[in-house]
């Protein structure tokens, strides 16, 4: 077993496909590992998933801990947590990153509680830095800075765990960039043989229904998103019409999702999807920090809002103070006229 300090990534997978967020975090772990001189380790639990190990290595891992067992075929809290807890106790990773998926958010707190270590949910950035504790007059070197919007908005908190290991954090899909796969990368696949107590197996999955998501928010080149300023289904239909014209997707702020105007799969932001489209049109979205954290890296941002002081205007490239119900039809009309002109020109 390697004595080298390590950064772990929980590798989540469904139907033989690794979740994007796990590979994104493997890439981030590689970056942090290079900075700290740590080994990057993917923790892969499942049944007959050997083929996935090389993919984890190709995305930046030095080692994959492969726990293969029929009880691990489908994700369940207790067997998965058992493997992570036992291995973490033995190998003492410094950092443990987990995707902020429903399973990841079920798994991570269970493991953190057993290991009695700190866990920060939904980080929007991870950095390495030093932390001085006045009470102890001591500087802790190279801690994981777990950065997240906090307290409902306006504020960004940097959380650290000076005294406990591993330093655990969850990160939502899309926050980190997925690195290009390098099939030539070499790594170690280390098989581990999990042992379960009867108590680990008290929960049975009777059935599982997977709804295939038809929306690909993260990869959409254009996103037309609506927020609290959208009041009617008709106005929401305008968003969809514009998104279709631009070959894009419809996004939403949490306010619009909570209001029941659109499915949660469309939510952009800290607790939704992080996106970096070529063009982001924010229609009636005031721009709370949690939303901006999920879209502020868009190449161009058009903000439409009746409130001239909406925070979204401060990061927008084009500010349109006006009513969504009037401005969107103008944009749609302009685009339709353009495409008609083009057709005539041809």
């Amino acid at each position: 077993m390697s004595e080298k300090q390590s950064i772990w990534v929980f590798i989540e997978h469904t139907d033989g496909v690794i979740a994007d967020v796990s590979l994104e975090l493997t890439g981030k772990a590689r970056e942090l590992g290079d900075q700290l001189g740590f080994e990057v380790v993917g923790l892969l639990c499942g049944h007959e998933v050997d083929a996935l190990a090389q993919e984890v290595i190709a995305h930046g891992a030095d080692r994959v801990l492969l726990a293969d067992h029929e009880e691990l075929a489908l994700y369940r809290t207790l067997p998965y947590a058992r493997v992570a807890i036992e291995e973490a106790r033995k190998r003492k990773p410094e950092i443990f990153l987990i995707g902020g998926t429903p399973n990841g958010r079920d798994f991570a707190p269970r493991v953190a509680s057993a290991l009695r270590c700190g866990l920060t949910a939904d980080c929007t950035d991870l950095q390495i830095g030093d932390y001085y504790v006045k009470k102890e007059d001591k500087t802790y070197k190279d801690l994981l800075f777990q950065i997240r919007p906090a307290f409902g908005g306006n504020l960004i908190a940097t959380i650290v765990n000076p005294h406990t290991r591993p330093q655990m954090a969850t990160v939502r899909e899309g926050v980190m960039r997925k690195p290009a796969a390098d099939a030539a990368r070499v790594g170690v696949v280390e098989k581990i043989a999990p042992v379960f107590d009867p108590g680990d197996l008290v929960l049975q999955v009777l059935s599982r229904q997977v709804r295939k998501s038809t929306i690909k928010l993260k990869d959409a080149p254009v996103i037309v998103a609506g927020g609290a300023g959208i009041e009617t289904a008709d106005e929401f239909a305008l968003l969809r019409e514009l998104a279709n014209l631009l070959g894009g997707e419809v996004g939403a702020s949490r306010a619009a999702v909570d209001a029941g105007l659109i499915d949660r799969a469309h939510q952009v932001g800290q607790t939704g999807t992080t996106v970096r489209p070529r063009l982001y049109i924010a229609a009636g979205i005031s721009g709370a920090i949690q939303h901006r954290a999920g879209m502020d890296q868009s190449s161009k941002i058009i903000a439409i809002n009746t409130d001239p002081n909406a925070p979204m205007f401060q990061i927008a490239h084009y500010r349109i103070v006006g009513d969504v119900g009037e401005v969107l039809p103008l944009i749609i009309k302009t685009l339709r006229e353009r495409s008609m002109d083009q057709r005539e020109a041809e």
Binding site: I156, A157, V160
Partner: peptide, 9 residues
């Protein structure tokens, strides 16, 4: 175990 290192506006 978690401590707030800093809070930025």
């Amino acid at each position: 175990p978690t401590q707030v290192h800093k809070v930025n506006f």
